[in-house]
Design a protein around this nucleic acid. Structure first.
Lengths: 169, 169
DNA sequence: TCTTATTGCGCAATTG
DNA sequence: CCAATTGCGCAATAAG
C-alpha cells in the first residue's frame, strides 16, 4: 500500500491532455445499466477509439507497425472488454479500500483524541494528589521543627499551621 | 465534505453500466496532448459523442424536442468545451484538497500518538513520585507510632505495642 | 509476460 | 448559473 514513489510532479502541470475515452460496449447481455446515481436519459452509442491497439497475440502480425491484421478487433475485442471489466472491478475495489482507510484514519484520530483527554485528566489528578501529599509533608516537617524540642517546647500551644488537608481521593 | 446523503446503495449493486465517454476536442489551439505521466504513442482522434446534447440557448428552438437548431454544436460547442474545462479544473482542485486532507489527518494521527506517549510517560513519572512520597509518609507514621509517644500522647497510657506494619497499597 | 492494484484524468450528474 | 463533489470508466504504471 502506499505508492508514493513515482509520478507526482505532473500534478503541477496544468496541461490538460484529454485522452479521449469512449465506451461502446454492453450489447444486451450486460444489463449493468443502473448507474448508482440517477437515471440515464438516453443510452448512447459511442464512437471508435484509439488507445486499445497495442494488443496483439504473440509475435503477431504487424506488431511493429502497430496495426493488426483484423481491422475490427480493437476495443471490440472480447478480450479487451474482459480486461477492461476486470480493471474496472479492481479500480472499484481499490477505491473502496482507500476510502475505508481514510475513514479508519479519521476514527483513529478521534480515538486518540479521547485517550489524550483521559490521560490529561489522569495527569491532573495525580498532580493534585502529589501536591497534597507534599503539603502534608511540609506541614509535618514544620511541626517537627517546632515541637521536636524535647524540654521547653510547647507541644500544642503552637500552631499547627492552618490545617489543611483534605484528602480528596 | 462528505456526501453520504444520497446515492450509496448502488455500491452494493454489482451492476456495471457503462456510460460511454469520448473526447473530441482541441483542434490545434489546445495542445493538451501530454498526459502528465508518460508519452502517448499516437494522438488519437475520436468519435462522435452522445451525452452533451441538452444544451440549448434560452427558450430556444426546440428545447422540448431536445434538438438544437445548429446540427454541429454539441460538444463541438465552444461553451461545452469551456464548461468541461472549468469542471475539470474544479475536479482537480477538489481532488487535491481531498488528498491533502487525508494526509493531514494521517499526520494528525502521528502527532496525537506522540503526544500520547508523552502523556503516558508523564503519568508514569508522577505515579512513581507519588508512590515514593506515600512510602515516605508511611515510614514516618511508623516512626511516630513507635517513638513519638513522648508524654502527653497516650490518653489511656497504653502502649502501642503490637503493631503496625504492613503497608497496604 | 500476465494479472491485479494504484493513480491521474476527463466526463456527467448532483449538490450547494 | 457556477463551483464543488462524487461515481464511473479508461489507460498507464507499478506490483506481484
Amino acid at each position: 500500500m502506499s505508492r508514493p514513489p513515482k509520478q507526482n510532479p505532473p500534478t503541477t502541470q496544468p496541461n490538460g491532455v484529454s485522452v479521449i475515452q469512449s465506451q461502446a460496449r454492453a450489447p444486451a447481455a450486460t444489463p449493468r445499466v443502473s448507474a448508482p446515481q440517477q437515471q440515464q436519459p438516453q443510452q448512447q452509442q459511442q464512437a471508435p477509439q484509439l488507445v486499445p491497439a497495442p494488443r496483439s497475440a504473440a509475435g503477431g502480425t504487424a506488431t511493429s507497425t502497430g496495426r493488426m491484421k483484423k481491422p475490427s478487433a480493437d476495443k471490440d475485442s472480447d478480450e479487451y472488454r474482459q480486461r477492461r471489466e476486470r480493471n474496472n472491478l479492481a479500480v472499484k475495489k481499490s477505491r473502496m479500500r482507500s476510502k475505508q482507510k481514510a475513514q479508519d484514519t479519521q476514527q483513529r484520530v478521534n480515538e486518540l483524541k479521547e485517550e489524550n483527554e483521559r490521560l490529561e485528566a489522569k495527569i491532573k489528578l495525580l498532580s493534585k494528589e502529589l501536591s497534597v501529599l507534599k503539603d502534608l509533608f511540609l506541614e509535618h516537617a514544620h511541626n517537627l521543627a517546632d515541637n521536636v524540642q524535647p524540654a521547653g517546647a510547647a507541644p500544642d500551644g503552637a500552631s499547627p499551621a492552618a490545617g489543611a488537608n483534605s484528602h480528596g481521593q
